[in-house]
Write a protein that binds this DNA or RNA. Structure first.
Lengths: 109, 109
DNA sequence: TAATTACATTGCAATATTACGATGAATGGG
DNA sequence: CCCATTCATCGTAATATTGCAATGTAATTA
């Protein structure tokens, strides 16, 4: 099938999964790290820096943008990308709750 | 191609991506939430609770186990799954560093 | 206006994921 | 030993992802 049964799960579960999926690729992690380390927009040299074709980088950027994690503004000929703070913080919170919802002291298995 | 160029990225980036990929499905999030809310091992009733076929749940559990996020021990006829605290904490740390490596005060885009 | 630069989009090919029925393997009860 | 229970694995179908060359689009420059 290859089709996730989203209707079975809660809005929250689906949303978190979507965000994590956007992060779950080394290229996208590298892109985000670049953007964050520049603390401002890194424009189009990501292709050279990461060693992936321009079309590939553009596609990854689109996925991150669709997830809402980054935003891009046109700056002359090039485009400037940076983190979307609202979505980023929201993810941080939701993920924090999820990852901390266990007391890691279970002597079960 | 459909084949990630892992050789281009750092060990850390690949590892984080692998962990996030394991989490990036609503069913696996739901499974982990169940396991955590029980604070101990939930065995095989996940299939009924989540409304997915037994084979599907088993496959998701395998992915979580392969990622190291959970561990399972045989308990008679059934199998008991619970969080692997070491890997879980390691992920929490690595993810925390990643998500906090930006000062969200950029007035860029 | 023509050429250049910077991205986006399209169209592929290769591979991965998701879901499930059917079947296999191991354990426990009778 | 036989059978039910529990879980894993296999096979398969539908769909998604990854990567890139080629091409399209919009703005800047000459």
């Amino acid at each position: 099938m290859g089709l996730t049964k989203t209707e079975i799960f809660t809005e929250e579960q689906n949303h978190l999964a979507t965000m994590l999926k956007a992060l779950a690729h080394p290229a996208r992690i590298a892109i985000l790290q670049q953007i964050m380390s520049a603390n401002a927009c890194i424009c189009g040299d990501l292709s050279i820096e990461l060693g992936l074709a321009q079309a590939t980088i553009s596609q990854h950027l689109k996925e991150l943008k669709t997830a809402g994690l980054i935003q891009g503004t046109i700056e002359g000929v090039s485009v400037c990308y940076c983190i979307n703070p609202a979505v980023w913080n929201q993810l941080k919170n939701q993920l924090g709750i999820f990852l901390n919802s266990t007391s890691l002291s279970n002597n079960c298995c």
